[in-house]
Lab assay of single mutants.
Amino acid sequence: MATVKFKYKGEEKEVDISKIKKVWRVGKMISFTWDEGGGKTGRGAVSEKDAPKELLQMLEKQ
């Protein structure tokens, strides 16, 4: 499965696309949330040019 790689608060992170729940556009950035388990929700953002095609497809479906 595809993953999204991004930096959050200076830390490199990687999230499996299948865990992503919500995707939206903020200017030229793609923001998203995912389920971290245990009732926690993670947040992240990646530039439109660095976003994997699967993430962009999720954005178009909404």
Results as ranks from 00 to 15, higher is better:
1 M>P: 09
1 M>G: 10
1 M>E: 15
2 A>W: 02
2 A>G: 08
2 A>Y: 03
2 A>C: 13
2 A>F: 03
2 A>N: 12
4 V>C: 01
4 V>F: 02
4 V>P: 01
4 V>I: 08
4 V>N: 00
5 K>H: 03
5 K>R: 15
5 K>A: 02
6 F>A: 03
6 F>W: 03
6 F>T: 05
6 F>E: 01
6 F>H: 02
7 K>Y: 06
7 K>L: 12
7 K>A: 03
7 K>Q: 07
7 K>R: 11
7 K>C: 15
8 Y>M: 02
8 Y>E: 14
8 Y>V: 04
8 Y>R: 01
8 Y>K: 02
8 Y>I: 03
9 K>L: 09
9 K>D: 14
10 G>H: 02
10 G>P: 00
10 G>T: 02
10 G>E: 02
10 G>A: 02
11 E>D: 04
11 E>G: 10
11 E>V: 11
12 E>P: 04
12 E>T: 08
12 E>A: 04
12 E>I: 13
12 E>Q: 07
13 K>Y: 12
13 K>C: 08
13 K>S: 02
13 K>L: 08
13 K>E: 02
13 K>A: 03
13 K>D: 01
13 K>T: 04
14 E>V: 09
14 E>G: 01
14 E>H: 06
14 E>R: 03
14 E>M: 03
14 E>S: 05
15 V>P: 00
15 V>N: 00
15 V>C: 04
15 V>K: 01
15 V>M: 04
15 V>L: 06
16 D>G: 06
16 D>W: 04
16 D>I: 11
16 D>P: 12
16 D>L: 12
17 I>V: 15
17 I>F: 02
17 I>H: 02
17 I>Y: 01
17 I>E: 02
17 I>K: 02
18 S>M: 11
18 S>K: 08
19 K>I: 11
19 K>M: 14
19 K>S: 10
19 K>T: 14
19 K>W: 10
19 K>P: 01
20 I>Y: 00
20 I>S: 00
20 I>L: 08
20 I>P: 00
20 I>G: 00
20 I>C: 04
20 I>A: 01
21 K>S: 10
21 K>G: 15
21 K>R: 08
21 K>I: 15
21 K>F: 14
21 K>V: 13
21 K>C: 15
21 K>L: 10
22 K>T: 13
22 K>W: 15
23 V>K: 02
23 V>D: 00
23 V>N: 01
23 V>A: 10
23 V>M: 11
23 V>I: 07
23 V>P: 03
24 W>E: 14
24 W>I: 14
24 W>K: 07
24 W>F: 09
24 W>M: 12
24 W>D: 09
25 R>S: 06
25 R>G: 12
25 R>I: 13
25 R>W: 06
26 V>C: 15
26 V>N: 12
26 V>Q: 07
26 V>R: 09
27 G>S: 12
27 G>L: 09
27 G>Y: 12
27 G>V: 07
27 G>W: 07
28 K>D: 14
28 K>G: 15
28 K>T: 10
28 K>S: 07
29 M>H: 15
29 M>R: 13
29 M>V: 14
30 I>H: 01
30 I>F: 12
30 I>C: 04
30 I>M: 05
30 I>W: 02
30 I>V: 09
30 I>S: 00
31 S>I: 07
31 S>L: 05
31 S>P: 04
31 S>R: 06
31 S>A: 06
32 F>Q: 00
33 T>D: 09
33 T>L: 07
33 T>K: 15
33 T>C: 15
33 T>E: 13
33 T>S: 11
33 T>V: 10
34 W>I: 02
34 W>L: 01
34 W>R: 00
34 W>Y: 09
35 D>T: 06
35 D>S: 05
36 E>W: 07
36 E>D: 09
36 E>I: 05
36 E>H: 06
36 E>T: 08
36 E>S: 08
36 E>M: 13
36 E>P: 04
36 E>A: 04
38 G>T: 11
38 G>S: 12
38 G>F: 13
38 G>A: 11
38 G>K: 04
38 G>L: 08
39 G>R: 08
39 G>V: 10
39 G>P: 15
39 G>Y: 05
40 K>E: 11
40 K>W: 05
40 K>H: 13
40 K>Q: 15
40 K>P: 09
41 T>F: 08
41 T>W: 12
41 T>Q: 09
42 G>T: 05
42 G>W: 13
42 G>Y: 09
43 R>S: 11
43 R>E: 10
43 R>A: 09
43 R>W: 06
44 G>C: 07
44 G>A: 14
44 G>W: 12
44 G>T: 08
44 G>S: 06
44 G>D: 01
44 G>F: 14
44 G>K: 02
45 A>V: 15
45 A>F: 05
45 A>D: 14
45 A>P: 01
45 A>R: 08
45 A>Q: 11
45 A>Y: 14
45 A>L: 07
46 V>E: 01
46 V>R: 01
46 V>H: 02
46 V>G: 01
46 V>I: 10
46 V>K: 02
47 S>F: 10
47 S>L: 08
47 S>P: 13
47 S>T: 08
47 S>Y: 09
47 S>V: 07
47 S>I: 14
47 S>A: 14
47 S>Q: 09
48 E>W: 04
48 E>G: 05
48 E>Y: 08
48 E>A: 08
48 E>C: 15
49 K>T: 11
49 K>D: 11
49 K>W: 06
50 D>S: 11
50 D>T: 07
50 D>F: 09
50 D>P: 02
50 D>E: 09
50 D>I: 09
50 D>H: 14
51 A>F: 05
51 A>D: 02
51 A>K: 01
51 A>P: 04
52 P>I: 07
52 P>G: 04
52 P>D: 03
52 P>T: 04
52 P>C: 04
53 K>T: 14
53 K>I: 13
53 K>D: 05
53 K>R: 04
54 E>R: 04
54 E>G: 06
54 E>M: 06
54 E>W: 05
54 E>H: 04
55 L>H: 00
55 L>F: 05
55 L>C: 01
56 L>E: 06
56 L>S: 11
56 L>D: 03
56 L>I: 15
56 L>H: 08
57 Q>C: 10
57 Q>W: 06
57 Q>I: 11
58 M>R: 05
58 M>P: 02
58 M>C: 14
58 M>A: 12
58 M>W: 04
59 L>S: 13
60 E>S: 13
60 E>M: 08
60 E>R: 03
60 E>F: 05
60 E>K: 12
60 E>W: 03
61 K>E: 11
61 K>S: 13
61 K>C: 15
61 K>F: 09
61 K>G: 14
62 Q>N: 09
62 Q>P: 12
62 Q>C: 15
62 Q>G: 10
62 Q>H: 12
